[in-house]
Design a binder for these strands. Structure first.
Lengths: 228, 228
DNA sequence: GCCACGAGTGAACCAGGAATCACAATCCAG
DNA sequence: CTGGATTGTGATTCCTGGTTCACTCGTGGC
């Protein structure tokens, strides 16, 4: 019925302008959408959540999402790009700082753990969905990922002269695998304890004694990131 | 057009009975389908591969798959059920055998590595797709998975009296995470070397010295399983 | 040899969900 | 205060891909 469109459409649902408490027009809607997508995708898998779901979780209707993203996959790409960027920045900062290889390596480990805890769900989505991306984006992200890994290998290499190149890579993958195992189950441990244990096991995989912890900077509260 | 159905339908395509070389009617078509699904899903993600793809890879047409499986998800369930069963059988055999806790734990590690190498792609699919399953199947598989993990924890517990319950679980997850990291990249290493390194790192995560290797049974050639 | 049945095929069906559109409400600039 | 740009909405379109169906072919038992 294209005619008579004004049959109390807006007042029909309970979620009118007065619903919830948030204003209708939200300046950080885009962030909310990303958070919603990350949350839902990490729980149910990206392809099983619809635009309607994402919208609903972000406080708008499905089609409204297209005001902020060109397509569904654009959301995914934005999400994965962001988490990859976080990892890179962290690694960059570590390697730019002072210290020998061992200190650097331990700092890399700690930073990865930090991201795994803070950006838990996004990193989980990354791990599960990179390979479903369209050719181009996948290639790009994979390249970044390779660079990131190369940083680890480069630092680990002088500490493990006994390992060949492929073996170094394997060790790095395993260490990261150990860390990221925490993405897929609820340990219930306190964040600090969790981080410590992961730290120990990652170092164990790498076969390197952890360097003494550096002076901890301003400590942001650990949670599942600003995104959520 | 229900009438006049005989417009040279069969002779149209070039893929007549003489195509390929395999006989048209294949007694192990079902296995071929599972292998195809595992292969494709591990590479591109289960939801991005269509029935047509699976069929094609298995040597038949898309709709033909329904002669062997009720639905697309039925294929996935069959796949995941099978790999979970493999893990369970392995663990069952280990625990039924002789030896103390350390021997058992090392055997569990080795068996998981075996499955990770032999059933590589299926295990990868499991890891990425369990949570997309319909409620019921997911619950069932998760329960089995929990039991399997409980076996590990139960054996590890007396060897790591210093760890609390949640911490034991974390260690087990991390060890398995380290092992399964091999599912997601090509190390290029020889299978034996790969297995040895993974063995070492898994034990390192668990904080337990590996028990001496048992007498190796009849050694089946390592490859990506009979499925592929 | 013949018949029944299982496996395979191509076409058609159909649902669900991504994307589009016209319109309403809101906010901001001038 | 007012007009334009922006954000949100509901309905509509459109298309991909899973599923069904009528039919054919090859095989194995009688």
């Amino acid at each position: 019925m294209p005619t008579a469109p004004s049959t109390a459409t807006t007042s029909g649902t309970a979620s009118g302008p007065a619903a919830g408490g948030r204003s209708r027009r939200d300046p950080e809607r885009r962030e909310r959408i990303l958070a919603a997508a990350a949350q839902l995708a990490s729980r149910r898998g990206f392809h099983t959540v619809g635009m309607a779901d994402i919208g609903a979780e972000a406080g708008i209707v499905g089609s409204g999402v297209y005001r902020h993203f060109d397509s569904k996959t654009a959301i995914l790409v934005a999400l994965l790009d962001r988490v990859m960027a976080r990892l890179q920045e962290g690694a960059g900062a570590v390697l730019a700082g002072p210290g020998d290889e061992r200190t650097h390596l331990s700092a890399l480990v700690r930073d990865h753990i930090r991201v795994a805890i803070e950006d838990r769900s996004v990193l989980a989505v990354y791990h599960r969905e990179v390979h479903t991306l369209p050719e181009e984006d996948r290639r790009r992200l994979r390249r970044l990922q390779r660079h990131y890994l190369e940083d680890w290998v480069h630092v680990l290499s002088p500490l493990r002269r006994d390992l060949a190149d492929g073996e170094l890579r394997l060790a790095v993958h395993a260490a990261i695998g150990a860390i990221q195992s925490t993405l897929f189950f609820r340990s219930g441990l306190a964040p600090e304890r969790l981080a410590d244990l992961l730290d120990g096991m990652a170092h164990a995989c790498l076969g390197v004694e952890p360097a003494p912890a550096p002076a901890p900077g301003p400590e942001p509260a650990l949670s599942d990131s600003a995104l959520e």
